[in-house]
Amino acid sequence: MGKVRVAAFSISLDGFGAGPRQDINNPLGVRGLELHEWALNTEEFKKMHGQSGGTQGVDNDFAAQSFENVGAWILGRNMFGPVRGPWEGDSWKGWWGDTPPYHTPVFVLTHHARPPLTMNGGTTFYFVTDGLESALQQAKEAANGQDVRIGGGVSVIRQYLFAGQIDEMHLAVSPVVLGEGEQLLSGINLSELGFIPFKTVAGEKATHLLLKKG
């Protein structure tokens, strides 16, 4: 049976999973890209974006493992793009160009209906307007026994944590201090939710912390 998991989600030393003031020029918020420096030059990241080369090692291994056995994704609307309010046709198709890196069904939480958007490489975005539970149910059905990956952003992960729906988390702790932005775990008692750390691995540019329900 598939798991519901968070994987390769980057946070700063002071606990932020995104920077402040997201916009078209700052998809991850101001300075948010610094959280992902550990992944950007890996072989896996470059392969995902149709490039060659890249570094190998611990960080690359974790980047690759984050995509293993994933049958569907869930994203928040902010993760899909900076557009607010009702959709204006198909003018916005995500940050990733014509071939997004997901290659599975992706369920986007939103308050505004929109027809499914089929992209190259096997990615279809489905826009879910009736809440977290519906998105998860649809994602599990689409995953067909594989894992459902909660891709973010911060708000979506927090909501699924509070709902008790996440089985495992892999957090990549980057050596960055943001000082402001979106706190991932503030006010969340992971121990009370049943999480225990079961592995910590030092990578080249991040420390990888793995937690699961005990």
Rank of each mutant, 00 (worst) to 15 (best):
Q146K: 15
S66K: 07
K199D: 10
L109R: 02
F16D: 03
F45Y: 14
L117Q: 12
L117S: 05
T207F: 09
P20S: 08
K47Y: 06
G57P: 09
I188E: 06
N78Q: 15
A163H: 14
G81L: 11
T129Y: 03
P115G: 03
A135Y: 05
A139D: 02
N78T: 15
H111R: 15
S155K: 13
G2I: 01
Y102G: 06
W38I: 00
K199H: 07
L28R: 12
G203L: 04
V4G: 04
K93M: 09
S186P: 05
S52L: 11
R114L: 10
G179M: 06
P105G: 00
W38A: 00
G76R: 11
G71N: 05
E88P: 05
F107I: 11
G214S: 13
M1D: 06
G121W: 15
L185W: 01
N25G: 13
L136E: 04
K47V: 09
H103N: 15
P101K: 11
G29R: 10
I74A: 02
W87L: 08
V156H: 00
E88V: 13
K205G: 09
D23M: 05
F62R: 08
Q65S: 12
R5K: 15
F195T: 02
R149V: 12
W87F: 15
G57K: 14
M48S: 13
P27G: 08
W87V: 07
P86K: 00
G53R: 01
L178Q: 03
H103D: 15
Q183C: 04
A63F: 04
R158D: 02
S66M: 06
G57W: 11
V201R: 05
A172N: 10
H170M: 14
A63W: 04
P101S: 10
M119K: 08
G187L: 08
M79K: 12
G54E: 06
S134V: 11
W38N: 00
F67P: 00
V108A: 03
L178P: 02
R5T: 10
N69E: 12
F127H: 03
G57V: 08
G32Y: 09
E182F: 10
Q183F: 05
F80T: 14
H36W: 14
G85A: 09
T110Y: 04
